[in-house]
C-alpha cells in the first residue's frame, strides 16, 4: 500500500503493508529515524508520538490511518519551541526521565500541556487535570524512573512556562 504522509515535517511516500503498526514503520521504513520502541502491544508506553497534534501510542496506529497525516516523533518535537518548556521544567525539578522513556514521557507531558491549553478555552469532563490525573496519565509509560511528586513538579513547572508563552504570544 502506498501512503503519503508527513513525518517530522518531511513529506514521505511509504510503501508498506496496510496494517503495519506505525512504530514498526518508523523503525524500519523511515530513513534517518532514531525512533526505537518495539513493544507491539500498547503495554510499555514507550512509543508515544504526536499524530495530527494528538498524542498516540504508535504501536496502536495502523499504516492505513496515516494517509495525509502529520506524524511528529520526539526527534521532530525537539526542534519545536515547545520542547524548551518541558526541558526547563526537568531542569527546575532536577529530575529527568531515564533515556529509555525520555522521549515518550516528554510527549505525554506535551499532550497534557495541550489539554490544559484547551481547558482554558472550554470546560469539559475529560479535560480536568488534577495532580492525581497527571500521575495517572504518565502511568501510560510503565517505566518507574520518576516519582509521583517529581511528575507533578515537572508538570506544574512546564505548565507555568507554557502559560507565560501563551501570554507573551497574545
Amino acid at each position: 500500500m502506498k501512503i503519503e504522509c508527513t513525518i517530522d515535517g518531511k513529506r514521505i511516500l511509504l510503501t508498506v503493508n496496510s496494517n503495519k503498526p506505525l512504530n514498526s514503520i518508523l523503525m524500519e521504513d523511515v530513513e534517518q529515524s532514531n525512533f526505537n520502541a518495539k513493544c507491539s502491544d500498547g503495554n510499555c508506553g514507550n512509543c508515544v508520538v504526536l499524530l495530527n497534534d494528538t498524542a498516540v501510542l504508535s504501536c496502536l496506529i495502523p499504516a492505513f490511518r496515516l494517509r495525509n497525516a502529520h506524524v511528529l516523533t520526539f526527534e521532530g518535537y525537539r526542534r519545536t519551541r515547545f520542547w524548551h518548556d518541558i526541558e526547563r521544567a526537568y531542569e527546575d525539578a532536577k529530575s529527568h526521565p531515564c533515556p529509555l522513556c525520555h522521549a515518550s514521557k516528554t510527549l505525554i507531558f506535551e499532550s497534557l500541556l495541550r489539554t490544559i491549553g484547551k481547558t482554558e478555552e472550554k470546560e469539559s469532563t475529560d479535560s480536568n487535570l488534577d495532580d492525581e490525573a497527571v500521575v495517572k496519565e504518565l502511568g501510560l509509560n510503565r517505566c518507574m524512573c520518576l516519582e509521583a511528586n517529581e511528575i507533578i513538579e515537572i508538570f506544574n513547572s512546564a505548565a507555568n512556562y507554557r502559560r507565560r508563552r501563551r501570554v507573551r504570544r497574545n
Binding site: N17, S18, N19, K20, P21, S24, S40, D41, G42, N43, C59, L60, I61, P62, F64, R65
Partner: peptide, 24 residues
C-alpha cells in the same frame, strides 16, 4: 475496524500470514 486499540494490542497482530481484509 473501530478504534483498533484492542486488535492492535494483541501479541499476534503483526506480522501475521492470515490477515483478513479490513473495513474501517
Amino acid at each position: 475496524w473501530a478504534g483498533g486499540t484492542y486488535i492492535m494490542s494483541r501479541h499476534d497482530y503483526y506480522p501475521t500470514k492470515d490477515s483478513n481484509d479490513i473495513i474501517s
